[in-house]
Each structure stands twice: as C-alpha cells, then as structure tokens.
Design a protein around this nucleic acid. Structure first.
Lengths: 204, 204
DNA sequence: GCGATAAAGAACGCAAGCGTATACTAATCG
DNA sequence: CGATTAGTATACGCTTGCGTTCTTTATCGC
C-alpha cells in the first residue's frame, strides 16, 4: 500500500493541487527544464531532476520527447528570450546603455543562465549552438550595429567605428564582468562600460 | 594466462617500450590528464580515459591521488602556462599586440583549452577556480595594466585610461572571438583588435 | 455517470564510471 | 642473484542516470 505521500521537489511545494494534462503539463515541464538547465548546467542536468521540478514522473517526459537532448532543444526554443524593440532615445550613449542593460538583465534570467551554460558546455549538439546564435546572439549584435549606424547618421559616431568588432565591445565587457564574479550587472556597471570604454571609441 | 596484449590508447602506439616508474610515470599521467581535460572537458573526463592515454592502469593513478579531483588540481598546477616576461618594445601598441598574441596562443594550447573548459565547467571546485585566477588571469591582467602605465608615462596613453576596465578590453575581445568560432586567433586578428578597439581608447 | 486516455509514481534492466582488490611481472636495490 | 617495490592488467562492487514498463488513479469527452 503506497503512502500517497507527495514527494514534492526541493521547494517542498505541493503538486499544483490538481493533476495537469496536455498543454499545461508540457509548459510546466519545459519551464522546469529551463530552471534545471540554469541551476546545474547541461552536463549535470538529469531527466529525473526535471521531472521532480515539474512534479511529475519521467514517463510524462518520455511520452513527449524521445530523449533528453530533444527535451533540451524544445526547452531552449521555448525559453529563448525575445529580442525586444531597438531603443531609440536619440543618443547613441543612451541607446547603448539601454540595449546593454537589457542584455545584462536577460543574462541573469533563468533562461539566460541556461543559455550561457549551454554555450559553455562541451557536450551540447551543434544544432543547439546554432539555435542560440541565430535567435539570440545574432539579432542582438545586429541591434548594436544598428544603434551605431544611427549614431553615425547623426554625426555622433565616427563612421569607420561602425564595425562588428566595435559593436561587440560592450557585450564582451559585460560577459567578462560576469565571468569574474557573477553578481548582477547593474546599470551602474553598464554605464561605466559605456562611458569609459565604448563611447571613447566612437567619438569623431 | 593473460594474453599480454597491449591495449594501447587511441593512437595505437606501444607503451614506451620499457616500463616507466616514479617521476617519469607521474609526468606522463599529468600530461595525459591535461590532454584529456583539453579534449573532452572536465565533466566528461574519466579516470579510465586518463589512464589509457598515459598507457597505464587506474591503480597507478589512485596510488598517487586519492580521487579524480586531486588529480585534476595537480594537473592544473603542472600545466598552468607560465606568464612570460612583460614585453617592452617602447610602444604601447606593440606591447599590447605582443601580450595579447601570447595570450591568444596560450589559449590554443592543450593546457589553455583545458583551463578554459575548467572555467566553463559547472562542477569544478572553487579551489580550482581560485588557482586559475591567481596564477593565470590575475598576473596577465596586471601585465596589461603595467603596459598601459608605461604608455601613460611616455605620454602615449591618456592617464585616465589606465583602468582595470580598459586593460580588460583586449582580452575580452579575444575571448569573444574564440567563443564565436574557435579557430586560432592569429596575429592579424589581434592587430585588428588592438588597432580598431584598444588604441582608439588610449589616445590622449 | 462511464469508458477512454493519460498522469503519477515506483520498479526494473542497462551502461558508464568511480574507487578497490588481486594476480602477475618488470625494475630497482642490497 | 634474490627480495622488495611498484607498474600493468583485469575483475569486482557500488552508485548514478537513462530509458522502459507497470499499476493505480485522476481527468476528459460523451
């Protein structure tokens, strides 16, 4: 006779009271996968862990995805942060602060952490890397470049500073900052980076 | 009756003809650990794999290190790339190209790759992270700063550009470049980074 | 309400990898 | 040379995690 005792994940929260099915359960599983990915990374992630976080069993997972990898791919598609609109404050400096702050905030999100860990992981499929580059990294780089282009049209930016290389400086510095000590990169740090590093690069 | 058949690693090479002992074997094991670390990363590294690469058995490993982690710590100490002398060409630009090229080359080394993978790994002990920071990252950042300081004394560098933040720009860009596509960062790329990004930051 | 469906939860077989133990053999030292 | 030390090779037990299967039970369509 089973004890009918809720095993309840680490948080000790009860399993949503009622039993979920179909779409609702699928979303919960994907969200759990993202959290698992963010907290322990891809290599250490386990199917059992995801199931426990979603307050369900492995069977519910394997009914939907043939293998762990497929779940991860779907989870990434599910959670990859949307790009947001390109800010247009009228000044490159403020556009850049805006953009980079948004990026920094995104990275601290569970989804962002998961993404970062995926990129750092050695065992993830090339398909995953491509997805991340195509949906997250590429667009943001393009947005940074666009901000520079507009600045150049306004005469704020030296025309030959409109380069992929220059566009990447801000994000590279933010990532470097996170690598050192992964505390939240607050707006102050972003402004420091923009004012001390990026802006001096752009002046005509 | 054992077949006395050499299992011989992936390369199929015979086990050094004679049987190694003591110091010689220890060095071989550490070197093998570094290669394993570089090729498959910390998470996927196995003791059996290291033993096979070193053409020896696990027993020889466990006689020296109580656990996998201790082997890794020793392997890191064994292989951490030495810093080299601070170049002094008389121009910041050339000093920086020199320094950053050396860093880029180091990263492509097996030892460098191993280090990078350690930092990216989620499961490595904090002790390892501290070792890497103390012996590799810290000193190199200090060298970059010193190059800036000397440039400032010569009047090549705007004094208030002598900052940790500015010093890190070059290395951040190199790492970013590797993250995109991990092809060798050749001197041309380093010069591009220095000339297009770092130098414009320093001009008085 | 009633049957079909699918979720929850646990058990299982399997493979990989850690760390240990054992038998044998080569190297070194007295 | 003979004894001791230490490396080679292999096998074993143990744990972990994958993927499967089974029973019980809640939910949904009719």
């Amino acid at each position: 006779m089973a004890h009918q005792q809720w095993h309840c994940g680490p948080a000790g929260c009860p399993p949503h009271g009622k039993r979920r099915r179909g779409e609702a359960l699928e979303q919960a599983i994907l969200a759990a996968a993202v959290r698992e990915l963010a907290e322990v990374g891809y290599d250490a992630m386990t199917v059992e862990g995801v199931a426990a976080r979603a307050h369900t069993g492995k069977a519910a997972l394997y009914r939907r995805w043939p293998a762990k990898e497929d779940l991860v791919v779907d989870a990434l598609h599910f959670m990859l942060p949307p790009c947001g609109a390109l800010p247009d404050t009228g000044s490159v400096r403020d556009d850049l602060v805006e953009l980079l702050s948004a990026m920094a905030a995104t990275i601290r999100t569970p989804a962002g952490t998961a993404m970062q860990r995926m990129l750092g992981s050695q065992r993830c499929a090339p398909e995953i890397l491509e997805t991340v580059h195509g949906k997250v990294i590429g667009p943001r780089r393009e947005m940074l470049l666009e901000a520079l282009r507009r600045g150049a049209q306004r005469g704020e930016v030296r025309p030959d500073a409109v380069t992929v290389l220059v566009a990447q400086v801000g994000s590279a510095m933010i990532l470097q900052h996170l690598a050192d000590d992964d505390r939240p990169v607050d707006r102050r740090v972003v402004e420091e980076i923009v004012d001390q590093v990026v802006m001096p690069l752009l002046r005509p």
